[in-house]
Simulated scan of single mutants.
Amino acid sequence: MNTIAYLDRLGIDSQSLGEPSRSTLRRLQRAHVTTIPFETLAVNGDPFDDADDGEGVHLDLPHLFEKIVEREHGGFCFELNGLFNWLLTELGFDAERVAARVIGSDGSARPPANHHTNVVELDRRYVVDVGMGVPSMRRPLPLDGEVRTDEAGVSWRVVESDRPDETHRTQYRYEPDGEWQDRYLFTDTPRMLTYFEATCDYLQSAPESTFTGDPVVMRATDGGHVKLSPETLTRYVGSESTESPVAESEWHDVLEETFGLDYRGA
């Protein structure tokens, strides 16, 4: 781990970081989600290159460092939270890998361990996640139910799970009096990175996986989120969104200008 190079990737001067604290953790998390995109191009490949099937996702920490920090690519949860956990521990945080289950639009939470998140022990225990799509979690979220609202206007909380197989449930809402929406379930049991390998392989190869269709790229912005599909660029502010068509000839330029990713010839 080259922490200086990783922090440079996040736009953070290592000399300005300070000791492990809640404010330092919040700064790291926000910088991560607004800088390094959630993207599935390693799974799907270039949508306009029939010969590019993607390099695949490999849960090896030196490989993840080379991909995300040195080549300045993004990744999905196992990659982003997997590497971020390494950075946090190198910086002196008490950070644990935790398996979670993202809840689908139909209410299902399958397969098990379909999401990697982190729990950090400070004055309290916090969920710290840099590996989600829209909306992204921008700040540490305490496990005691306290509501935290970010600068994009999204409120988050962790509540007790009503399922026998998981202990906690993360929820979010866009409006102060809006309905809470479930994001994912988890139990804060520490796991090794290898624990996620089977589900990672399934999600990047199974025809029924949500990740084996068209590639997607997402990143948090100062006031919302931005998302790129093969045909559309979508900008989110709160629960509102606007779509702009993206021509094939423009797609790689948008990818580089909006997300800082250059996959041409990758």
Rank of each mutant, 00 (worst) to 15 (best):
residue 2 N to C: 11
residue 7 L to M: 12
residue 10 L to I: 06
residue 12 I to Q: 04
residue 16 S to P: 06
residue 26 R to V: 13
residue 35 T to S: 13
residue 37 P to L: 15
residue 45 G to D: 06
residue 48 F to L: 01
residue 50 D to P: 04
residue 53 D to S: 11
residue 64 L to K: 03
residue 65 F to P: 05
residue 69 V to W: 02
residue 77 C to G: 09
residue 82 G to R: 03
residue 85 N to E: 12
residue 91 L to M: 10
residue 93 F to P: 08
residue 95 A to Y: 00
residue 102 V to I: 13
residue 104 G to P: 04
residue 106 D to E: 13
residue 122 L to G: 13
residue 123 D to H: 15
residue 124 R to A: 15
residue 132 M to C: 10
residue 134 V to F: 09
residue 136 S to C: 13
residue 136 S to H: 09
residue 144 D to W: 06
residue 145 G to V: 06
residue 150 D to A: 02
residue 151 E to V: 07
residue 154 V to F: 05
residue 155 S to D: 09
residue 162 D to R: 09
residue 164 P to F: 09
residue 167 T to W: 05
residue 169 R to Y: 07
residue 174 Y to S: 03
residue 177 D to E: 13
residue 178 G to R: 07
residue 180 W to F: 03
residue 181 Q to C: 06
residue 182 D to Y: 03
residue 183 R to Q: 12
residue 192 M to Q: 05
residue 192 M to D: 07
residue 194 T to H: 08
residue 196 F to Q: 06
residue 198 A to S: 03
residue 201 D to I: 01
residue 202 Y to G: 01
residue 205 S to C: 05
residue 209 S to M: 01
residue 212 T to G: 01
residue 212 T to V: 04
residue 219 R to V: 03
residue 222 D to H: 13
residue 227 K to S: 08
residue 228 L to Q: 01
residue 229 S to T: 15
residue 229 S to K: 03
residue 231 E to Q: 08
residue 233 L to E: 00
residue 239 S to Q: 04
residue 246 V to I: 15
residue 246 V to L: 13
residue 256 E to L: 15
residue 260 G to R: 02
residue 262 D to K: 09
residue 262 D to I: 10
